[in-house]
Design a protein around this nucleic acid. Sequence first.
DNA 1: TTGTAAGCGTTATCAT
DNA 2: ATGATAACGCTTACAA
Lengths: 323, 323
Amino acid sequence: MKAGVSRSAVSRTFTPGASVSDETRLRVLRAAEDLGYHVNHLARGLTRRESGIVCMIVSDLATPYRSNLLRALTDQLQNAGRVAMLINTDRSDGSVNRALQQAVRYRADASVILSGMPDKSIIDLCLRSGQRLVLINRDEQQEGLLRINLDDAAAADTAARAFLRAGCHLVAFATSGAGTPSLVAREQGFLEAAKELGLQVIVERQGVTGYQCGRTIAQSLMTRRQRPQAVFCATDLIACGLMDAVRQEFGLSIPKDLCVIGFDDIEQASWSAYSLTTFAQPVDEIALQAVEWLSLPEGSAFAREPLVKLHANIVWRQTVRGG
Amino acid sequence: MKAGVSRSAVSRTFTPGASVSDETRLRVLRAAEDLGYHVNHLARGLTRRESGIVCMIVSDLATPYRSNLLRALTDQLQNAGRVAMLINTDRSDGSVNRALQQAVRYRADASVILSGMPDKSIIDLCLRSGQRLVLINRDEQQEGLLRINLDDAAAADTAARAFLRAGCHLVAFATSGAGTPSLVAREQGFLEAAKELGLQVIVERQGVTGYQCGRTIAQSLMTRRQRPQAVFCATDLIACGLMDAVRQEFGLSIPKDLCVIGFDDIEQASWSAYSLTTFAQPVDEIALQAVEWLSLPEGSAFAREPLVKLHANIVWRQTVRGG
DNA sequence: TTGTAAGCGTTATCAT
DNA sequence: ATGATAACGCTTACAA
């Protein structure tokens, strides 16, 4: 062709590990440079039957934890020579489904679901269209998918013990109204640990996970006859809202009057207005595991343990006495 | 084929506005359902010479403002029946360039650059490979690209006037060491407005935009012989850091001892720990404009004004006296 | 190592 | 309205 070589030579030049002589490769490369040629991945995907696209299905994208996870994921993905397609599932109307269809139509090799409460139908569609599937902090068990979960129970146990050491006996768990699997696991774990340690616990569920939810919970928790001496929040966002309300509306001091522990270790948890003791989601490790599994050769993917359980380390800051 | 019809019939069924009889369409649709058939967009892109993919080139993805903008953009994009490919330019090594190459190889129809300081070469590459390009809050002028900018000068002017009304005379501008075009525009605008109003202004530049940067600036601003009575922060993140440091390390009260105005109106600005008066980036409007332009038919795209200037409304909260 | 040729799933053109 | 057929740009046997 352009460099006086055949198509195949060109193809081989751009296929890692194909046999081309250095001479021809160079000629091709030079010609490509001149002509501004780039391999067409649409065409490549067509023949190779794999597109190199992996789909990120995410809701609440603008949330600190989610955006951070997405960052880590795309970073690793790029590193592995793949490319991320983003599907935003915030809306509840048909546009989500349309977007999802899109993903299928582009023959994505895989999808990573970091949506809080993905529709079961989403999972099915991905699986049916032959994609590999990674579920982060979710429950569904099915053939051919990888779940990456945190050890929520262990974290909850650590939290309960910290509260006990701080001399608290009446403690609370703050969470959203509708529970994602991980939120539920944290709640269960906390309940069990509390029971074992002889702690009395109030569970407070309000609205949607987020700052406002924390404020609402503070309201109902602090107007009780018996105020809890500590609260374990299912997410940092809840913790932030709760702390603001507790301090400003009830004039309490943290950790003197109330101990607080969060979950996620979002950026804001480290801000000195909060200095929140919390559990760090190992986002980079999550991303690494996901991408590694996606890069496994065809056969071995299913020989692997379909559940990765990661540990969430506690980050001690200033919201627990004697932490 | 499967439904006793030709390929073309199938194609037409899935091509909006093609002529198929209801009867055949129905037959095809039914067969597709049965066989789990989905149009292959890789192949379609190949023949149609447009992929339907638009590329989001973003750095600091986990930052509140960026992730929010990305959310708005993907949302609108999906709504318009297109799909977003995400390129994370955080790293400085080759992986960014590789990722970008990827995008080109997938024959993205367009790219939206929301990166703080994109390499000039990125812009060139996109343009050269025939993509349409949208630049958000950037400067570069070139044929065939749309710039969407905020009216930073007007906002800065509003801020200066607010400070004047609050009785401040010595004011400061807080920004990062390296200035993106919008940060520079805010600075310039503020300087000019201050001059016009007879305000004395200190410009403080430190490190990378973000919370820490705000803390550092507070440090150097509040240890001066003459403390400023107000500070206009180039971003909310800077404002948050500054406020925390000012309150906790210098025991000052806001807005009594110091007025603060931010920019972006990130979620945290509304948290009661800050209640920051700030300028709201009209992210939805930005996204709308971008997607609308991308959807313009071939010819008309270049007939249109290549610069959209949007207004950033001030959101009055509690950090300016008499706001 | 290199070239030839078939085929990947579409769409577009041209008949019918 | 429908069907045949030639692209689209690439990969991959297979042959040389």
